[in-house]
Design a binder for these strands. Structure first.
Ligand SMILES: [Zn+2]
Ligand SMILES: [Zn+2]
Ligand SMILES: [Zn+2]
Ligand SMILES: [Zn+2]
Lengths: 149, 149
DNA sequence: GGCATGGATGTAATGTTATAACATCGCCCT
DNA sequence: AGGGCGATGTTATAACATTACATCCATGCC
């Protein structure tokens, strides 16, 4: 895992990925991803909206939800369901299933890929007659910073 | 696992558990759990509210949210975050972490306990410096019924 | 050029999910 | 009787998300 990849680099990669796939990486989408990256911790849609509004007073909920739809659809960002926040994807090229560790104390989010967990998971699912579908799994897990307290 | 334990039995067990723990299993709480059990598939808070309202016209959102808070707090029901539904707990005595398999097609929910998955999970978390906190893990997984389609 | 096409955005309204705040009731205890 | 306290009633509002339709603009085709 690249430790602390800078926002600028991730943005570059995202732009490249969009070009490669024939997707329009428009200013709004870019800006939303950038805000997510700069923030680091995951943002609520309406916080994002407030930030966008500061630069673009006409922005409304659809403005930001559309950008978020685009980003999540193409795995450039992810939605954390349990607290309705959005976070930039930290994987170089997100195709495999990810675990999202969500700290209940500080809401920090860590994206993690772990083969052995996914294997165990798939085995258990198969035993129950199910089949893994959504590659995004949220886990409540206290982060290193909050572990002591 | 008890196959298809009847609502009545689960209600009995819930009542007993509350008595044992000195908790008030009031009519509203009972009724909400019963509705969840009868429905089987998980209900939205406002659907539940509509059902309650039919018998008790004065019911309002807090009426049902309070009952749900109680039930989830004491593990008699669970909230499925990804689609904001609530489901009755199917475990005889829910203390260990559970996996919740949520079918993306039909929204059916299966509660599953699996030691090996949880072990793999805890190991991966520990390696990342985290610590499992929330014992409830949602997984998107196509259910046996929907697997063919 | 004229003009259909389709994706992206603007705009207004609304739908859905959840909580805050405060009043009241009923029960247990003294 | 009076106090404490958990449960409930009641009103309002906060927070999260979508629908629906108008407009714009780049692209490709006649
Ligand atoms: Zn990712
Ligand atoms: Zn933390
Ligand atoms: Zn359970
Ligand atoms: Zn299904």
């Amino acid at each position: 895992m690249p430790p602390n990849t800078s926002p600028a680099v991730v943005l570059e990669r995202a732009a490249a990925a969009c070009t490669a796939r024939g997707l329009a990486f428009t200013p709004i989408r870019q800006r939303v991803l950038q805000l997510l990256l700069e923030h680091g911790k995951g943002l609520k849609a309406y916080d994002l909206l407030a930030l966008i509004k500061a630069e673009q007073p006409g922005a409304t909920p659809p403005t930001v939800y559309r950008a978020l739809d685009f980003l999540t659809e193409h795995h450039l960002a992810h939605k954390i369901e349990r607290n309705a926040t959005f976070v930039a994807c930290t994987q170089e090229n997100h195709v495999e299933p990810s675990l999202f560790l969500v700290c209940p104390k500080c809401s920090a989010i860590t994206e993690l890929q772990d083969r052995s967990v996914m294997q165990a998971l798939c085995r258990a699912l198969a035993a129950a007659g199910h089949q893994l579908d959504n590659p995004e799994v949220e886990i409540g897990a206290t982060c290193p910073n909050c572990k002591g307290s």
